[in-house]
Amino acid sequence: MAATNEDLDRLWQVLRILGWGAVALILLAPAVAMRFTDEVNWTTSDFVFAGVLLIGGAAVIELFAWRVRKPAIRIGLALLVVAFVALIWIEGAVGIFH
């Protein structure tokens, strides 16, 4: 059974809400963890980097959603942006290329 455009539009709306919620939780998690342990030690520049990366990635996804009408292509482009953001995040955390 193939998904209709209406089903994909509904899925897209749910994914948008989950995506913005994930951005907020990812930025909030280290701030909360720093209150309870010395193992997490983010500086202001760490929060700025994470905020620009996550909010910028989400904004690019929103731009794709605004410009691209086909839900399947929207979801595919969103996954591409998420993969790109994850790659930059991992590189920032591990520092393979410095």
Rank of each mutant, 00 (worst) to 15 (best):
I96V: 14
A83Q: 01
M1S: 12
A86G: 04
A83G: 09
E91H: 06
E91D: 15
G19M: 01
R69Y: 03
Q13M: 11
E91R: 08
L63H: 05
F84V: 14
A31T: 10
S45D: 13
L79K: 00
T4M: 04
G19S: 05
W12S: 10
E39H: 02
A50K: 08
L63Q: 07
L53G: 15
D46K: 04
N41P: 08
E62F: 03
A24C: 00
L77V: 01
I75D: 04
L87G: 12
L11Y: 01
G95P: 15
L63E: 05
A86P: 06
T37H: 02
G19F: 00
S45N: 11
G56N: 05
D38K: 07
N41S: 15
V48Y: 03
I88Q: 00
R16A: 08
L28W: 05
F97D: 11
F97T: 14
V52M: 15
L28Y: 03
V48P: 07
A72W: 04
M34P: 10
P71Q: 03
A78Q: 05
V60N: 06
A83W: 02
L18S: 03
W42C: 06
L79G: 15
I88D: 00
I90Y: 14
L79H: 00
W66Y: 13
T43V: 09
G57F: 09
A24Y: 00
M1L: 10
A86M: 07
A50V: 13
W20M: 02
H98Q: 10
A50S: 15
Q13T: 12
W66L: 14
R35D: 10
K70T: 14
I17Y: 05
V85T: 04
G51L: 14
F36H: 09
L27R: 00
N5T: 13
D7I: 04
Q13D: 13
L79S: 07
D7N: 08
G57N: 08
V23L: 03
V85F: 00
M1R: 08
A83V: 13
I26F: 07
I96E: 02
I61D: 06
L63W: 12
L28E: 02
